[in-house]
């Protein structure tokens, strides 16, 4: 083959290899794939939670972090010039052993401990000092494991890494100006799909994104990660000198986020996990 022929062949090869990157799967195929992945994820997730609830003894430590843009003007949809964020950090330790439970929550300087038996608080301590046990509702301090409509799933993936299986999924819920909260697939204010998913920020109040990461080890829940993002619609005004008019555009910016990472432990052998006294 002569040089010119080689160069033409190389260019055709490059072009052929670039085409897949520029071509997306058709919408029907994309959403069918998402639905299948979503249903599988929800089944795996619910299965893992059911297995956890059936365990007689386990413990988890959870770290929780949240940040909120406190000076966002939600009514006028305006981002502040200088952003002020409120950040909260919390750590929770939960132990279950048969009918006995123990919860320890540390947030800032305060450490709350609750001892439960049969679901009722038997002892409460704040910073080591005994407190009124009736003042504390344990359900507030236990972590709830949310699930959502699989139709709202945006994406999911699965990985095997040595003895662990990691599964992830994302949910997008759109809150529109009529205050209907819908999965993005049902909202009239979304268009496109995959990386081209876009929102009509003028008619939306906010989009909530929930990302879940599920790590299983030997079939049991080893880690659960929950990330939420609140994306609020806001208005941008720019004065155009050339037309003497103010141009208004709408965009979405993050105004809040949370991170919860829960790591589970199980008793080795037949005995349960000891509850601190």
């Amino acid at each position: 083959m002569n040089k010119k022929g080689l160069i033409i062949f190389a260019l055709i090869l490059i072009f052929a290899l670039t085409l897949p990157g520029c071509n997306k799967a058709p919408a029907e195929e994309h959403f069918a794939g998402l639905k299948a992945k979503g249903e599988k994820f929800v089944a795996d997730y619910n299965g893992a939670i059911q297995k956890l609830n059936a365990e007689s003894s386990y413990s988890y430590t959870a770290i929780f972090y949240s940040e909120t843009l406190t000076n966002f003007d939600a009514e006028n949809k305006k981002l502040p010039e200088k952003e002020e964020w409120r950040k909260v950090n919390k750590e929770t330790l939960y132990i279950k052993n048969g009918g006995e439970e123990y919860i320890k929550v540390a947030s800032g300087p305060e450490v709350l401990e609750l001892w439960l038996s049969g679901g009722e608080v038997t002892l409460a301590k704040v910073n080591g000092a005994v407190a009124d046990r009736e003042a504390y509702n344990p359900e507030v301090y236990k972590i709830a494991f949310p699930s959502d409509d699989p139709a709202a799933l945006f994406g999911g993936a699965e990985r095997k890494w040595f003895s662990e299986t990691i599964k992830t999924a994302q949910f997008y819920n759109v809150c529109d100006i009529g205050e209907a909260r819908l999965p993005y697939t049902l909202s009239p204010y979304t268009s496109g799909y995959g990386e081209d998913l876009s929102f009509d920020w003028q008619n939306i109040i906010s989009v909530d994104i929930l990302s879940i990461g599920l790590t299983l080890k030997k079939g049991r829940l080893a880690k659960l990660e929950l990330y939420t993002e609140k994306i609020s619609a806001n208005k941008k005004e720019a004065f155009q000198i050339w037309s003497n008019q103010t141009a208004i555009s709408y965009q979405g910016n993050r105004t809040g986020a949370t991170k919860t990472v829960i790591e589970f432990s199980y008793p080795k052998g037949d005995g349960g996990i000891a509850i601190p006294r």
Binding site: A157, R159, W161, I166, T168, G192, E195, L197, S198, F199, V207, I209, S211, G213, T215, K223, E225, Y227, E229, I231, Q251, G252, N253, R254, A257, K259, V261
Partner: peptide
């Protein structure tokens, strides 16, 4: 890609998604 790196959704301004622990 193997470690499930999350790319931003560009229809959200300055979106930087949280990355999983994995």
């Amino acid at each position: 890609s193997f470690f499930l790196f999350a790319v931003p959704l560009t229809s959200i301004t300055d979106h930087s998604p949280m990355q999983y622990r994995f």
